[in-house]
Computed example of a mutant assay.
Amino acid sequence: MVDQVARLEAAARERLDPAAYAYYAAGSDEEISVGEAAAAWRSWRLLPRVLRDVSHVDTSLSLAGTPLATPVLAGPSALHGMADPQGEVATARGVAGAGSLLVLSSRSSRPIEQVAEVAGPWWYQVYCLRDREVTGEQVRRAARAGARALVLTVDAPYVAPKPRVRDPLPLGAHGDEALANIPGVRAQDREQDPSIDARVIGQLAEQSGLPVLVKGVLRADDAVRCVQAGAAGVIVSNHGGRQLDRAVASAHALPAVAEAVGDRVPVLVDGGIRTGTDVLVALALGARAVLLGRPVLWALAVGGSGGVGALLESYRSQLSTAMALAGAVNLAEVTADLVAGAGRSRG
């Protein structure tokens, strides 16, 4: 599948406005973290079981009370309207058709309510903005529209510079699509609030009535603090290499975070996941599910909603094959003993 994702990216690059492609593909500074992400998953080695009946493999799970056909989710990414005229509406259709879950970015090109009309189960990603009233209204809108959880991104107190992103973005006729869900406020109030601390987890939960997962965690001690502050889940992520360059790859940060959190809340992970075998490794290292970022954008640009659905189904099929070859017939059997050198306490 790694070739499939590479082919999708190449085809998407041909179709996208050059400024849009640069925005989607870019990392911060020297793009070291971007370059390391996929290779980090491939650095792990597997210890498959044999002589197991693997004639039937089940990739389904229940995540935060939601039944899903696959542990491969569509993570939050901004401005899908540059990839497809229907933007996140098209993405949501494709994700729903694959039996997966969408995490809708607060920087989406389409209003929350339009996406919710066609979505299957979905969560809403949120930044805590300098104007807290705007943030509060966002999360209340998401709750009213049917979001099942919030995903608070915490690794972007400031937006890191991305040297590759230079030209104005092709935002369409409205010219302000990036702010479909945060209109009518001053530019400085749209910025992330760099003063927030762990108390914001409980504040957002109270404002929305929804569980709050925290995204952007790479350290075990931070993960524990998030759980102690009321987080309903932790997402191991380095923001796709778009924030602090040289931040450790998610594939290497995941085991310590999963070990520290234990069974208290689900741990998810994103960043550089290109194959079903990557997904298998992530689950064995302690993740409950994984999220895809750029591959969804490439699939959307090339094939619209159908392309997104086909991508997710391809990951699910690849995972099913990898599980069978590793001797695991369901996700409960994907344990740490399948990974060479991984800790065995969660096995």
Rank of each mutant, 00 (worst) to 15 (best):
P255C: 14
R225E: 14
T135E: 00
G94Q: 10
D222S: 05
I235Q: 12
A220E: 05
R140E: 09
D29L: 10
A19Q: 13
V339L: 02
C128L: 12
D17F: 12
M1D: 14
L101M: 15
E31W: 08
E30G: 09
E9N: 15
V134Q: 14
A187K: 13
V214S: 02
S105V: 05
A90M: 08
P71C: 00
P295W: 05
L325E: 05
I201P: 00
G94V: 04
L213N: 03
D167V: 09
S28Y: 07
D3P: 11
W123I: 06
S195A: 05
V2R: 14
G343I: 02
V267D: 11
A232N: 06
R288A: 15
I196E: 00
Q125I: 01
G309K: 14
T135Q: 02
G65D: 05
A299D: 02
P168H: 09
A247V: 05
R49K: 13
V269K: 00
A310G: 12
D189W: 02
V103I: 15
S250W: 01
S237A: 14
R144S: 14
N238F: 12
L63K: 04
L73V: 06
V269D: 14
G75Y: 03
V257I: 09
G75E: 04
L150T: 01
A39H: 13
R225G: 13
G304F: 05
A251Y: 12
Q86N: 13
A19E: 12
Q188W: 03
L254G: 11
I32V: 15
G293W: 07
A247L: 03
G343S: 14
A143H: 02
D29H: 15
Q125K: 06
P121N: 10
V212I: 02
L291T: 13
A178G: 14
L319I: 10
P255L: 10
S109N: 06
A256S: 12
G343K: 00
I32N: 09
R110S: 12
A310T: 10
G343W: 01
L61T: 08
A322M: 06
D84A: 10
H239K: 11
A287H: 00
D131Q: 02
G81A: 06
Q188K: 00
V248E: 09
W44P: 03
G94R: 15
R164L: 12
W41G: 09
S237W: 02
I273C: 04
R15P: 05
S208V: 07
G81W: 09
A40M: 09
T335N: 10
I32D: 11
A332E: 07
N181E: 11
G233I: 13
V89D: 08
P85G: 03
A20K: 05
T70G: 04
A160N: 06
V126D: 03
L297H: 13
D131S: 07
A256K: 10
G233N: 08
D155R: 03
Y127I: 01
L16M: 12
I32R: 14
Q114Y: 03
L254S: 12
P194N: 06
G136P: 03
S195F: 08
